[in-house]
């Protein structure tokens, strides 16, 4: 049993500044696929962020990505240790250990773990790359207290 009380540190996180400004362009999703400088991808297979509308963007949007839980349920159900809690919240994903069982996807209460084309998963690592491409000030990369 891990105890996280009184643990305070400063982390850089991807945050939502103003959800109502989302125009649904999805540039964040495509940026996420390009985030690794050594192996950028085209498409959305490896994207860990998703803007969805409330049955039409005129009714508003929700941008879904890992909330960086202090005690992440996804890591708790991972049978192989591919997902491990990260200090300060969120998870570290080691894809070499991942079976593609998708227990984590079911465990995440906000549906922030996505299935890749190859059956493995994509989860936000809070690198902040996507926020550089959010043209309308919905996303930002900021220091937060964890």
């Amino acid at each position: 049993m891990r105890i996280y009380t009184n643990l305070v540190s400063v982390m850089k996180r991807l945050v939502i500044k103003d959800l109502e400004k989302c125009v649904g362009c999805g540039l964040c999703m495509y940026a996420c696929s390009r985030k690794f400088a050594k192996k950028p991808e085209i498409g959305n297979s490896n994207s860990a962020i998703l803007a969805i509308s409330l049955s039409g963007f005129e009714r508003g949007a929700t941008v879904i990505f890992c909330h960086a839980c202090i005690d992440p349920p996804c890591a708790q159900v991972c049978p192989t240790g591919a997902l491990k809690p990260k200090k300060g919240g969120g998870v570290v994903y080691n894809e070499n250990l991942c079976l593609g069982c998708k227990y984590c996807m079911n465990a995440c209460p906000i549906n922030a773990i996505f299935e890749r084309e190859d059956g493995k998963i994509a989860v936000c690592i809070h690198c902040g790359y996507c926020s550089n491409y959010c043209p309308h000030g919905v996303l930002a990369y900021e220091e937060v207290e964890a």
Binding site: E41, S45, E117
Partner: peptide, 21 residues
């Protein structure tokens, strides 16, 4: 769908993308 395509030159791809953006 969810799909990935791998660019022939990843580094250049990111550069050109940024230029167009």
């Amino acid at each position: 769908g969810r799909k990935k395509y791998v660019p022939a030159d990843g580094k250049k791809f990111r550069e050109v993308y940024d230029e167009i953006f």
